[in-house]
Amino acid sequence: MPLPYYVSPEQMMQDKAEYAKKGIAKGRSIIAMEYADGVLLTADNPSASLHKISEVYDNIAFAGAGKYSEFENLRKAGIRHADLKGFMYSREDVTARSLANGYSQSLGTIFSQEIKPLEVEILVVQVGVNGQPNEIYRISFDGSIIDEKNFAVIGGRAEAVQSVLKDKISTEPTALGAALALCVSALEQTANQKLPPEGLEVALLDRNRLGRKFRRLSVADVRRLLSD
């Protein structure tokens, strides 16, 4: 039996991280941004049927960047977790914080124990109701979890989009149209191309809705909001 050759743990982790980062950077970006009535999620996604943004529970949405099959699995796991918790206890006991914690645990374990890390970066977003603040959690391939304020970007050239947004974002709550226009311009700047409404996937967590707060915006909705 041939002896396995020695690789230092530092080297191994570094290699894995590099591999995962490369995979995530290949894709396109997704932005989550707070606006006056909730949270807006905007993705550069030319496909109308393969979603990157999805509903998880009443107040909670999920967005995934990187490898589709991998974040799709994470998305389904999250919905099972949330629905089970809501069924077992009550709908108000399902929180983004516990969901984000679960994701962080799973991703962390897979990163350290499996040979191939997951090439994904995900967002778990919760709209605050009854005066509670919104929550935006960004979770990386290695399970690190960051509690973001105002906005968060994942996938593609996330850092470039982030720096564009950082300069332009106002501290005052913005209207939906203005927030969407800002997201689209940031995505266009870093992608170096014009993004038509058909090439965008846009969804909201609108705190003024009753029950389930998640709503997808149609191409017509997006066009109307951007032309206002």
């Binding site: 699995n73 389904k76 796991a77 999250g78 099972r80 977790h81 629905d83 089970l84 069924f87 077992m88 969901l99 679960g102 994701y103 645990q105 799973s106």
Partner: peptide, 22 residues
């Protein structure tokens, strides 16, 4: 969020999920 949520569970049914895991 451990095994039962991931696993190779394929069904989109919550009822099947409960039957199998809870």
């Amino acid at each position: 969020m451990k095994s039962p949520y991931f696993s190779d569970f394929e069904s989109s049914s919550f009822f099947d999920f409960l039957t199998e895991h809870r």
